[in-house]
């Protein structure tokens, strides 16, 4: 990457690839002294108001953010966290990157097959298609490949 990044957005979901993406984001952040913003998006069903008090989901989101934050601390990386409630995660991530002036989105994608073929998950697909900034995907290794970095 040629240009420096001031802020990196890392959407997390509470899956093993979260840590992969954090490791990747941290390597950029250390190089460019950039901020890392962790993002967890709660998808709100259409039959609920967008600001509905979804205690369980909020609690889960906070726990995921805290866990990833701890991991980031462990590898010597300071991060900020944000929790969003949106109808769909993809547009919220793209918009948040814009709002927060992020120059890079690092997004973890689990290995995912659709109709027997590899496919990018809809959330990551949307981000890839619509994000105005750079996007890096951190994909899970194939099942027969080496174990993940985090060992979650």
């Amino acid at each position: 990457m040629d240009t420096k990044v001031k802020r990196i957005l890392v959407p997390v979901e509470g899956v093993p690839t979260d840590n992969e993406s954090i490791v990747l984001a941290c390597s950029f952040a250390k190089r460019d002294k950039s901020d890392i913003l962790l993002l967890y998006v709660i998808e709100v069903r259409r039959n609920l108001p967008i600001d509905a008090e979804m205690s369980k989901e909020i609690e889960h989101g906070e726990a995921v953010l805290e866990k990833v934050q701890r991991f980031a601390d462990k590898i010597g990386c300071r991060v900020q966290t944000d929790l969003l409630q949106a109808r769909e995660a993809g547009p919220a991530i793209v918009n948040e990157a814009l709002e927060r002036d992020a120059q890079l989105i690092v997004i973890g994608v689990p290995y995912y097959e659709k109709f027997g073929e590899y496919a990018v998950q809809p959330r990551a697909q949307y981000v890839l298609e619509h994000a105005g900034c750079r996007v890096i995907l951190a994909r899970d290794p194939l099942p027969q490949a080496q174990p993940a970095l985090n060992g979650q």
Binding site: V41, I50, I58, E62, L84, Q85, R87, P91, N95
Partner: peptide, 8 residues
């Protein structure tokens, strides 16, 4: 398109 940002 509206979403909510929850902050602590």
């Amino acid at each position: 398109d509206v979403y909510v940002r929850r902050r602590d």
